[in-house]
Design a protein around this nucleic acid. Structure first.
Length: 374
DNA sequence: GCGACAG
DNA sequence: ATCTTGTCGC
């Protein structure tokens, strides 16, 4: 299989041009990377990428700043740190960092405990255990737990970076359109991201003809990860990888009329899952396809029908649980942008083949996970 | 102990 | 998402 892999840093050095290449309608697969022949990148996508990445907060830096604020002899909880970042959902990410990241050894990681007072410890081989470090600061422990009489530190000075992102999400949500802007017989592409190594994202694009059931074009682009996974904020982790990918694709051929994105569309607590957010940024039709339901509730019992409506908070139908066959687990479909709920379901069903996921998304998922020459 | 929890 | 071996089912 022919694949083209470009690193983010290599992409940044590429010259920007605006010529468009015409591709014959036959099956086209990306040729092996030519020797440093300047690849054309669409100016607007490159600009968008720059804009998006510039506004990304450095959450790692912000977290370590907060950790440094916990006074000696005091303790706090993962949830309180997460709240200081602006969203309690960040608690699990914080726990992962403190447990696994070697850099946490140089900050007072031991002053962070669970809400019930129990000690999470660390996977690092630090010389002193969390218990020893806390006893040294005279923090009262009983049965490996901080005693309930201890009150948790929460007087953090913080700019609440995740609150700022929530506000940005609300503004983006206002720009979402559920009106169809899709041609009669649209071309379709599935996109997905995998993480072959820590800190490295690999985004894949697979354009698929649902009637011929054939792959029309595929592409892989590697880039660096600049944001952790936090529930509700997937966009900030994966959209940069998608923009690198789409800039490369658009330099070679027109993007598909509809992008099927692995993730939620408008079925999101603020109405702006990754498919919707990407659609708004590109102002192009997108559809969200996820394996788990992030937000909303089923309207019917989902036993016998292939399509079950999903209502969001306002009781409006915003998506559906859709199955290939009766006894399959469903996938969850919601419009991203420039697409109605009904059309989203139609197009997903049209692109079903033999797998649980619509074929373009299934193939993009597989392609992103395929090992490739580096 | 149970539910929530996109990727 | 990723870490992972064999195993069960069509």
């Amino acid at each position: 299989m022919n694949q083209v892999v470009e690193t983010a840093s290599a992409l940044r050095r590429l010259r920007l041009r605006s010529t468009q290449t015409r591709i014959p309608s036959a099956i086209v697969v990306a040729p092996p990377a030519p020797k440093r022949e300047p690849i054309q990148i669409d100016n607007s996508l490159a600009k968008l990428l720059d804009q998006v990445t510039r506004l990304l907060p450095d959450l790692h830096h912000d977290l370590f700043d907060l950790l440094g604020q916990i006074p000696s002899g005091r303790v706090t909880t993962f949830g309180r740190l997460a709240a200081a970042l602006g969203d309690r959902h960040a608690a699990r990410w914080i726990a992962t960092v403190l447990r696994h990241d070697s850099r946490a050894a140089s900050v007072p990681w031991h002053r962070v405990v669970r809400l019930d007072g129990s000690l999470p410890g660390t996977s690092r081989s630090d010389s002193l255990s969390q218990k020893d470090l806390l006893l040294r600061e005279q923090i009262p422990l009983r049965d490996e737990r901080v005693m309930s009489s201890v009150d948790f530190f929460e007087d953090f000075a913080s700019s609440h970076p995740l609150l700022r992102l929530q506000e940005e999400q609300r503004q983006a949500a206002e720009r979402v359109s559920l009106h169809d802007q899709i041609p009669e017989r649209p071309t379709l592409a599935g996109i997905d991201v995998a993480y072959p190594n820590p800190g490295q994202a690999r985004a894949a694009y697979v354009e698929f003809d649902p009637r011929l059931k054939t792959v029309v074009y595929e592409r892989i682009v590697d880039s660096e990860v600049g944001f952790p996974y936090i529930t509700g904020f997937l966009s900030y982790r994966e959209i940069p990888a998608y923009l690198y990918l789409l800039a490369e694709v658009e330099a070679v051929r027109p993007l598909a009329d509809v992008l099927l994105v692995d993730g939620s569309g408008v079925l999101h607590p603020r109405g702006i899952g990754i498919a919707a957010h990407l659609g708004v940024l590109l102002d192009r039709p997108t559809i969200g396809v996820s394996k788990k339901l992030l937000h909303g509730s089923l309207v019917d019992r989902g036993d016998d029908s292939l399509v079950v409506d999903i209502a969001a908070e306002s009781r409006e139908i915003r998506g559906a649980a859709v199955k290939v066959t009766r006894d399959n687990k469903p996938i969850y479909v919601s419009p991203g942008h420039g697409c109605s709920v009904e059309r989203a379901i139609d197009l997903v069903q049209l692109s079903f083949a033999t797998h649980r996921l619509p074929e373009p998304v299934y193939l993009a998922d597989r392609l992103s996970k395929a090992r490739s020459p580096l």
